[in-house]
Design a protein around this nucleic acid. Structure first.
Lengths: 195, 195
DNA sequence: CGTCTATTTGAATGTACTCAAAAGCGGTGG
DNA sequence: CCACCGCTTTTGAGTACATTCAAATAGACG
């Protein structure tokens, strides 16, 4: 079993993962190695995989009517990432996922996801909690983006995800925060002065 | 069985609900009638109930450091509403829920939620889909709020939720959209002119 | 009717945006 | 190894949208 994955699961379910369950799940996932700047999913296709990052960095985004990209999620080692809209609904993907660095990742197909949920009770539980947490985190993000100014949002972001700041280009962080790269640059400039 | 609830469940799971399951679930929920402008949950308490609205209207919000309220969700008949952060994590509520009209609602306690998930498979499935959908909708909201201007967001909102426009005070809709009531008033004024 | 709350309107301000250009940085090929 | 190219970040100036502060109007409710 992948140590990183095991830790992630045990942390999420708040308990130990048995050897049996571990082995059963292992049969359902596969490993994949990908270059940087490669699209894991394409807009318009159906996304029927979820990914767990063992190494590297990736992000998901949506393109608006004017062709601008808007970042939804970043992922580093030990993060799950997918277009859950497409994955769950079976409809065409509206989000895209792209690698930022060369990645080693685990792939769980929708088919195997459903097998896991059905045949390994602890995984049914695991995925429910995973999405519950994601939901809650997202709600918090909405609340913040409606209440705080960009500067505060950036400060919070950099406190909460210091690793992101170091490995992810600034223009993508700006997009995640809902501002333009120029604006983020100015915010950073002001912060440095003040410190 | 409550007709509204039955429809909601069947629509969500995409199939019929058996009499047995229906009856089993019915035992786990209770009905409650509440006046308007009453808090269903209080910040700081633990929220261990989810609500299904049979009648009336309610909304959830979070208060920021300056005491401003920021709306997260509206609910009318046939909507589920709760502070899922607190409900799932068991930690103190950071959101509050308040009624806008006199409400008749169904209450599912956390205890009974877990019983339902454990003993009625279809409800395990139902709640998973419910939160999946909520997650996906939220993600879309984030993408929109980062990409579109307030005017467009309001237009989309009023198309998607025409009932909300009619029954929910404007200052709360403004808050949901992440703008001030004055700004929404001006946006509406411009729209009228243009039509 | 009077009070309280919500909405509208005006004027001044501020934050983030656009457009434009320069500087910085990394990778590639000569 | 350095020159060049493309991409990212920074900086400047002017603009646009939403905010703040303030006050007037409109609605709801007892």
């Amino acid at each position: 079993m992948y140590e990183l994955l095991k830790k992630n699961i045990e942390k999420t379910i708040g308990g130990a993962l048995s050897e049996t369950d571990s082995a059963a799940f292992l049969k359902l996932i596969s490993e994949r190695t990908i270059d940087k700047k490669v699209a894991l999913t394409e807009e318009g296709n159906i996304c029927n995989e979820v990914y767990f990052l063992l190494e590297g960095a990736a992000f998901s985004f949506i393109a608006d009517s004017k062709g601008n990209k808007h970042v939804l999620q970043f992922a580093l080692e030990s993060f799950w990432i997918s277009d859950l809209y497409s994955f769950f609904s079976g409809r065409k993907a509206i989000y895209m996922i792209e690698t930022l660095e060369p990645c080693k990742l685990l792939v769980l197909s929708k088919e195997n996801f459903e097998i896991a949920c059905r045949t390994i009770p602890v995984f049914n539980c695991f995925f429910r909690i995973l999405i519950q947490n994601a939901y809650v985190a997202q709600q918090y993000r909405i609340a913040k983006s409606n209440s705080e100014e960009a500067e505060l949002r950036y400060e919070e972001f950099s406190k909460q995800y210091p690793h992101f700041i170091q490995r992810i280009p600034q223009y993508l962080i700006a997009s995640y925060l809902g501002i333009k790269p120029q604006s983020l640059s100015r915010i950073r400039k002001n912060n440095v002065k003040r410190v």
